[in-house]
Structure formats: C-alpha cells, structure tokens
Computed example of a mutant assay.
Amino acid sequence: MNIQAILTGAYMEMCYLVWGPAKKVLVFDPGADADSIYHAVEQNGLEIEAYVLTHTHYDHINALADLHDRAPAPIVVHSKDWAWAFDDRNSNAPHYPVPRKPSTDDIQWLESSKVWNLADLHFQVLETPGHTPGGCCLHFPKGGLLICGDTLFKGSCGRTDLPGGNPRQMKDSLKLLRQLPDETRIFPGHGQDSTIAHEKANNFFMK
C-alpha cells in the first residue's frame, strides 16, 4: 500500500494519493493545484479510481472539478457536506474562489456504508462531525493508516467555530479516534503526519 502527500494551495492543504498493486489510486481532498496533483498521478503510472472527500471546505475541494474534467471518476463524500460545498459562502478570496461543481451525477455517499472496497483497497468510514457536519475519517486497517482531514492534527484538532462546526460533536469524534490502534499513522489535512499513540500522549484535545 502506497501513500503520497501533495501540498496544495495558500493554506498548505494536504492532498493524498493512496494506491495498491493494481495501480488504481484514490485521490483524497484535491484542494488546489490540479496540475500538480494530476502530474503526480501520471508520474506514478496511476489511474484514478475515485475522488474521496473528508469534508468539503474550499481549501479541500477547489481542484476537484478541474481534475474530474481530465479524469472522470466517482466522487465519494458525505451528503451533509456535499449539500453546501458549492455555496457562495464556501470561499476565501483571493486564494480560494467558490469551488466549481463537477459535471457528474456519479456521487457516492460515504455514510451509505461503513466498509468500502475501491481501487483494490479496503477502508472503513468513521463519521467524525465537529469541524463540519459531514466530516469523515477513512481508516485503512491493513495499511495501518488514517486519512483524517481536519478532524485531527498533530498536536491539535479542527476548528469548531466555522459555520456547521460543533464543539460537542468534535469531542465525541476525537473519543472515537482514540479507540483506534496506537500504531495507526494519521495523515491530516494540514501539517505533519503522526500516530494515534503520539496524539493520545501529547495532544491536549485527545486527552
């Protein structure tokens, strides 16, 4: 199992490519810089199987439509976040305009199943609202890794003061992540990767 992080945009958001032996890749949170993301896909000789969104803030999905134009594939996202993803308020000019909506009806809802098999990879959906209403973390048990969006960071957690944020839900979501194996590697939407064990020991919000 392979994972590659691509730093994107003014907010230094982390887009992740995850793939296995079949060379079919899942693209997580294409926030900006579509050319850089697509170049990394081509450079690794990969075929995009799906775009998976941990949540739909502008800095996590602004490259989605451009990438989908080049390489159409299903979009996998929680319905509670897709509902407002292209709202005028989901922007921060001049760095992030309102995201352009991809021209497709091939949307698959993360909440429709707790277990997914895509691109010869197996992952589990953990619904982790708090930062956004439909925020999710994607756990790959065999690879021992967690794509956690803006729910959990190294030494911190996602903001809850933005529209749709909820401190109580965030607290419950972090409790859920505490139950994962200590050796699980976390790959957040911003900043360095870490492990569940490190965050339980050092992150105030995980205590």
Rank of each mutant, 00 (worst) to 15 (best):
V52R: 02
V52Y: 05
K114Y: 00
A73I: 15
P99T: 10
Q108V: 15
G144T: 08
P102I: 00
H190S: 07
T54K: 00
F204E: 10
A201H: 10
H78I: 11
P94E: 03
F205W: 11
G149R: 01
L7N: 12
K175Q: 10
F205N: 09
Q192T: 11
N202I: 15
M12I: 09
Q192S: 13
K24P: 00
P94Y: 08
R159C: 13
E199I: 14
P141G: 05
A85F: 08
H39E: 13
P30A: 00
D69W: 05
G149E: 01
E199V: 15
H95E: 12
K175M: 03
Q4K: 14
P133E: 11
W109M: 14
G165L: 07
W109Q: 11
D81V: 09
M170Y: 10
P97G: 08
A73H: 01
H198Q: 14
A22R: 13
Y11M: 14
T195C: 03
F153H: 10
P102K: 00
G189D: 05
P188S: 08
S112H: 02
C136K: 00
L126D: 04
I37D: 02
P167F: 14
N44L: 05
T184W: 03
T195D: 01
H190Q: 09
K24C: 12
T128N: 06
L118T: 08
I186G: 10
R178W: 04
D87R: 07
Y58M: 08
A83N: 07
L146E: 01
H55T: 05
G45N: 03
P141K: 00
T151G: 03
L64G: 12
M12G: 11
